[in-house]
Amino acid sequence: MSTTHPHTTTVSGTPPAWRPGLRSWLVLTVCEAKMVVRDTAGLVVPLVLPLLILVMSAAPAADQPVTGGYTALDVYVLPLVLTVVLGTIGVINMPSFLAYYRRTGILRRLSATPASPAMVLVAQVAVSAVQALIGLAGALAVAFGVFGAHRPAHLGTAVAVYLLAMGAMYAVGMVVAALAPTPNAAVAIGLVAFFALGALGGMFGGVSSLPAPLATVGEWLPFGATVAALGSAWVGAPVDPAHLLALAATVVLGSGIAATFFRWS
């Protein structure tokens, strides 16, 4: 054995507790990124679906003025598209990865090392955040470059809302990962959850076409709340605190439920 070990040893000769360092976190995050990139099909949904929605609805929306020089593209379509980016990554992709890791015993194998399986969670969230940024950049590039969208009036507020929304979508995804019994169930539940949240949040035509009670519920759910809050930030209107509260509550509730029910193996 090496004699360069810097730690002191105990009576039985076993070293004190040691935790994998920053390098380990970085390597794991790079590995998770490789897993995501090599799973090409999984990348298509969060990067292409939002663009598809954008391209299909942007042209008419860009000609429809709403308020103060902003068009329906700025107020409804773009916030919706950016929310779809977060939703597909957080609610559909991340739970399916985690459920697959659990099912195949990868998390169990990690729990037999000094690494914590929670490191995988953090690495997944980091990689998802990069994916979300790429999706965001792509959607914005097309919206600004091709359809002449306008910059948000309150950029800082828009960014803050987006980060909060990202947290809320991950929290929903973690609940899905925690409750789904199998990887297939995780994909199915994730898809249903995403489309249910999306439908109530105006993904298939405006919220105004929904029955009033449903529209109200949808506005309080993470998808609808994100679209509404982003839309407000975009035109410089004050963001309804109810929407921020709804997102924050989703983060707190979702993390709590996930932490209670998530099993590593």
Partner: peptide, 18 residues
């Protein structure tokens, strides 16, 4: 933490990042 450092384990049904 201390046990994981001195104990190596090969599991029967554990898979790895495919």
């Amino acid at each position: 933490g201390r046990v994981r450092q001195v104990l190596g384990v090969q599991l029967q049904h554990a898979s790895l990042h495919a």
